[in-house]
Amino acid sequence: MIDHTGIAVADFDRAKAFYDAALAPLGASLVMMVPQEHTGGTKVGGYGYDRPQFWLHEDAEPGKGRHYAFTADKRTEVDAFYEAAMAAGGRDNGKPGLRPHYHPNYYGAFVLDPDGNNIEAVCHAQE
């Protein structure tokens, strides 16, 4: 359904440091930087596993209030995501735990990134 998506960030280097830390427990990393000669000088980078699926691009007006959920295979990965994101400057928006109002095995954690985006790691497996 969705091949890739992206967000605007006010400070690319700050956002990169945050997402490097937050996505590492999920096995994702920065896999591509678009050469700035192709972006008009804007910093653009993509995170993923084998190809970029979540993009950051620097913009003077980032969009706050967006929500992105990243898949975790295990609940321990959700916990590690939350701890890493908080240590990298994220703000708590929902500690790791079950959210049975979504479904019985929904285990997620929510953190606001430096630009106010609500990011989540979620595991749907029964553990």
Results as ranks from 00 to 15, higher is better:
2 I>W: 01
3 D>Q: 08
3 D>V: 14
5 T>S: 03
6 G>K: 02
6 G>F: 03
7 I>D: 07
8 A>P: 00
8 A>D: 01
8 A>R: 04
9 V>Y: 02
12 F>R: 09
17 A>V: 10
17 A>W: 04
18 F>A: 11
18 F>W: 04
21 A>Q: 13
21 A>R: 12
23 L>D: 09
24 A>I: 13
25 P>Y: 10
27 G>W: 01
29 S>G: 10
31 V>N: 09
31 V>R: 15
32 M>S: 08
34 V>D: 00
34 V>W: 07
35 P>H: 05
35 P>W: 13
38 H>R: 11
38 H>F: 09
40 G>M: 01
41 G>F: 05
42 T>Q: 10
42 T>A: 03
43 K>C: 04
44 V>T: 02
44 V>K: 02
45 G>S: 03
46 G>H: 05
47 Y>D: 02
48 G>H: 01
48 G>I: 00
49 Y>A: 15
50 D>C: 14
50 D>Q: 04
51 R>Q: 03
52 P>T: 01
53 Q>W: 11
53 Q>K: 08
55 W>L: 04
55 W>F: 12
59 D>I: 11
59 D>T: 09
62 P>E: 02
63 G>C: 06
63 G>K: 11
63 G>D: 04
65 G>R: 05
65 G>E: 01
67 H>K: 07
69 A>Y: 04
71 T>E: 15
71 T>I: 06
72 A>L: 11
73 D>P: 08
75 R>V: 04
76 T>S: 15
77 E>N: 10
77 E>W: 02
77 E>C: 06
77 E>S: 06
79 D>V: 06
80 A>H: 14
80 A>T: 10
82 Y>I: 05
84 A>C: 13
86 M>F: 07
86 M>I: 10
86 M>S: 12
89 G>R: 07
92 D>M: 11
92 D>K: 08
94 G>V: 08
94 G>K: 08
95 K>H: 12
95 K>C: 00
96 P>F: 04
96 P>Q: 12
97 G>H: 01
97 G>I: 01
98 L>N: 08
98 L>R: 09
102 Y>A: 13
102 Y>C: 12
102 Y>T: 07
103 H>Q: 14
104 P>V: 12
105 N>D: 15
109 A>L: 10
109 A>R: 02
111 V>N: 06
112 L>N: 08
112 L>K: 12
114 P>G: 12
116 G>C: 10
117 N>T: 12
117 N>M: 04
117 N>C: 15
118 N>V: 02
119 I>S: 05
119 I>A: 03
120 E>F: 07
120 E>Q: 15
120 E>A: 15
121 A>G: 02
122 V>T: 06
123 C>P: 10
123 C>S: 15
125 A>G: 14
126 Q>M: 14
